[in-house]
Simulated assay, not measured.
Amino acid sequence: MTSFPLVADISSYQPDEPAFFQALKNQGVKAVIVKITQGSADGDAYINPKAKAQITNARAAGLLVHGYHYARFNGRQDAINEAKWFYQNATALGLGKESVLAVDAEDDALAHYATADVNAFLQYLIDQQHLNVDVYSMASWFWEKRLIQSELIAKNDWVANYGKSQPGIPNVGTWQFTNSFSVFGTGIDMSYDFHGYYTDPKIGYADGQLAIQVEQAPMPKIEIPVPDSWVDELGDTWHKEKGSFLLGMPLHLRWGARTDSAIIAMLPAGVIVSYDAWSRHGGFVWLRQPRANHQYGYITCRDARTDQAFGTFA
């Protein structure tokens, strides 16, 4: 399908036995990113109980190993506290400066505009002379400016966007394209590593600069079959369907399928919205509108509790 190397991310939900990592290796995976921690020493104080075995057995299978922290911080000092907890445990588990340490920024506990807090977390790692850092989040967080790509200290950028032919964000280094890659009898998260940041040991940061400069080129188009139904990164089930919806009342078109997602526009009654998928969640039936640059708008079309439609289907 593509020549880009594969990298898997795993947590305590995935196995830690050697056969699992050998199965990853056999399917062409080059590296794994292991969840190490969550929260801080005075907060969740969570350490993945399988992390040690996962790191050991992944390396034994010949895979490169990196680590990530699931963020729960809100505020600069809180972010630094979580970075300390992560770094302390990652290094204790044997992740050295050659490993990428990434922060997973997707939890609702984070500030709505989280760029400054994420940078405070990353800066702590850099201050410890750990220069190989990255940030993971959903494409919608970048669309809604919860994370501002140009202001982030980490420049690789690991973005999740499922069921698409491209990540939906420009200049992305690593793209989590699915959460259902089949291996060892289960579905797991899988990413394409465009620049080799996780999968090529020669690529990394030295003195704050990429050791190998990657020529910026248009994001390649990768054909990934879109199933008739799928579960997105927020846990909502979507169903493939093409159609048109005539608004019977003014409705908000949003960047996400949530009532608190950023508003693109207020569409007046009489507008026709073309859609390619629908989902029933949060008390509404949502439609997904394809937009330019592989982005999507979302609009409610029906009250899921009363089944009252807000317009008619063409």
Rank of each mutant, 00 (worst) to 15 (best):
D44A: 14
V32S: 04
I55D: 03
A41C: 09
G39C: 06
A19M: 14
Q27K: 09
Y68H: 07
K25W: 08
G67M: 09
A23N: 14
T37N: 02
A53V: 05
G62W: 07
L64K: 08
A60K: 10
N74T: 03
F20Q: 08
P49E: 07
F20S: 09
K25F: 07
G67C: 04
A61S: 13
Q54R: 06
F73A: 15
S40L: 10
Q14R: 07
F21C: 02
H66P: 02
G43N: 11
D42S: 14
I47N: 00
E17K: 13
N48E: 03
H66D: 03
A45V: 05
N57P: 11
Q27M: 02
H69L: 06
A71M: 09
L64Y: 10
A61D: 13
T56R: 14
D16G: 10
A61R: 04
G43M: 08
A61H: 02
Y70A: 03
V32I: 06
S11M: 03
I33K: 00
A19D: 14
S11R: 02
G28Q: 06
S40W: 11
K50N: 13
S40H: 04
K50H: 11
Y70P: 01
K30M: 09
G67A: 05
G67N: 08
K30V: 07
K30H: 08
Y46S: 01
V29C: 01
L63Q: 00
K30A: 12
H66E: 04
K52M: 15
K50D: 07
N48Q: 13
I47Q: 00
N57V: 12
G62M: 11
D42G: 15
Y68A: 07
A58G: 06
N74H: 12
K52G: 13
F21D: 00
A58E: 03
V32W: 00
N48I: 03
N26M: 11
Y68N: 04
A71L: 10
H66R: 06
I33H: 01
A31R: 04
D44G: 08
P18N: 14
N57M: 08
A31Y: 03
A19P: 11
Q38K: 11
N74G: 04
H69C: 03
Y46F: 09
K50F: 09
A60W: 11
D44T: 12
S11E: 05
A71E: 15
I55G: 00
A60I: 09
L24K: 03
Y46V: 09
E17D: 15
D44L: 06
S12L: 07
A53M: 12
